[in-house]
Write a protein that binds this DNA or RNA. Sequence first.
DNA 1: CGACCAGTTGACGTTATTCAAAGCTCGTGG
DNA 2: CCACGAGCTTTGAATAACGTCAACTGGTCG
Lengths: 246, 246
Amino acid sequence: MKMSGSINGKERIAMPATAPAWQGAVECDGCAFRRFGLFADLHAEDLAQQPFPIDRLSLAAGDPLYQEGGRARSVFSIVGGVVKLEKISPSGGRRIVRLHRSGDAIGLEALLGLDYEHTATALRPMSVCRIPSVAIDELGHRSSRLVKQLMARWHQAVHQADLCLTLLSTGSARARVARLLLYLGGEGRGSVCDGLTREDMASLLSITVETASRVVAEFRRRGVITAMGSNRFLLATGALREIAEN
Amino acid sequence: MKMSGSINGKERIAMPATAPAWQGAVECDGCAFRRFGLFADLHAEDLAQQPFPIDRLSLAAGDPLYQEGGRARSVFSIVGGVVKLEKISPSGGRRIVRLHRSGDAIGLEALLGLDYEHTATALRPMSVCRIPSVAIDELGHRSSRLVKQLMARWHQAVHQADLCLTLLSTGSARARVARLLLYLGGEGRGSVCDGLTREDMASLLSITVETASRVVAEFRRRGVITAMGSNRFLLATGALREIAEN
DNA sequence: CGACCAGTTGACGTTATTCAAAGCTCGTGG
DNA sequence: CCACGAGCTTTGAATAACGTCAACTGGTCG
C-alpha cells in the first residue's frame, strides 16, 4: 500500500514506458472525463497522426509524474486519483503547495514553453491523460496572440500564489516578515517597502498583528530597517536576506 | 498617506466615476504596459465602439477594485502599484491570499462568467486598466471551446492554490489537520481519507511531522477518526467540522 | 535476522498568541 | 489653535501552542 515497485528517490519519470493503459490516441468518448470536453476539439484535428499522441497513464502511489525544473512538454489531465505538487522552498526544504484531483489539469506551464514549476507525485494509485503541448499549440496558433497572453496571466496568478505559500507562510515570524519586506521592496540597494499596515502583514503571513508589530520593532532596533514616514521603511537587504533564511 | 477620501468600509467600488485618468479607449502605444502586448489584438478589433470601453483608473491607497462575490464583468491589468487579494476564510476572518503588481492581470475569472473570488484593494496609489470581459469574449469566440476549457483549468489551479492557503495554512494545527482530512475525504457520511503520510501532512500544513502525528493520534483517541489500514482513516465528519473552525 | 523507515511518544525549550493597557497620529470640530 | 477621539501601533506579562531532540515501536524488505 505504500510506495510501489521501483520508486525510491528520483529515478523514474512517467514516460510512455510507465505502464499506460492505452498507447496512442485515447478514446475520449465513453471516458468519465469526457464530460469536461477538453479533448473534443483536439480530436477534430485528427490527433492520432501526431508524433506524440495523447495517451493515458496509470500510476501507483508515490510515482512521480514530472519534476521541478524539467522541460515541460506535456499537460496532464487527471482522470482519477490525487496528485501533490511540491516545490523546493528557499530554505531548501520541500513544500507541498497544493493538491489536485479528478478534472484538474496540471503542468499547464507546458503550453507556455516553460519548465515545470513543481514536482508532481501521485498520492494514490491514479490515472492521468498525457497531452503533448504541441497538440494544443497547434490550436493556439490559429487563435491570436491574445490567447497566449491570457494564459501567461493565468500562469502569473498561479505563480504568485505559490510564492505566497513558499515565501510568506513558512518559517518563523521573523523570517516571514523579512521575506515580505524583501519581496515588496525589491532586492536592490536603497530599496524601500511601503504601504503595508501591521494588519496587512498579519493577514499575509498568518501571524497576529502583535507579533508583526514586535518583529518590525525589533528590526528597527537592530537597524535592519529604518522608518521613513508612516509604514515606509528603508531596507538593509543584506541583513534581511540573512534573517529570511529562518 | 493612509486611506484616502471616502474609504471607510465597503462603500465605494471602482466604477467609471472613480477618477479615471482617461475615459474611453486607452492609448496603449506609448504605455509602459504596452510591451506585454495584451491589447495588441484587442485594438485590431476596433474596440472603441464597444459599449464598455477599456479605460484606465487611478486608485488611492485603500481603494477597493472589486469585491468577493460580486459579478465579474471586467479583467484588470495592473499598470503600476500593488494590489492585495483578500478572501473570507472559513473562520470568518479575512486572509490576504496574494499580492499582485505591475504586469499582472487580476479578476481573470470574469472571462469565465464567474463571480469575483477575492476582494481586491490597492495597497498604494496605483493605476490599472479595466478591460470589460465582453471585449475578450469576442475573441475567445473565434477560437475553439478549447480556449475556454484551458482557461477553466488555469482557474482551477488558482482556486486550488487559494484553498491550500485559506484552508491548510491558517489556524491551529488541529484545525488544519481536520480541514485537510475533510478536504480529502469529502464531506459525506462514511468518507475516508487515504494515502497521506505524516510527512505529506506536515509539508502541506506547515507543521512538523511530530505535531501531525500527535494530532492524528489525538483524533484517534477521541474517536474523531478511525484507522483502517496504513494511513487510511474513516472520518467522523461532524466532529471534524467542529474542530476545523479553530 | 538485522537494517531501515515511518510513525509514536515524552520531556523540554522556544515561539507565538492572548488579553490588557498605553502611546501615537491625524483629522474633526469646538 | 487646541482638545478630542478614532484607529493604528507598541509594549508587557501570562499562557498556550508548537518545535526540537531523543528514544522507542512496529512493520517491511533484503
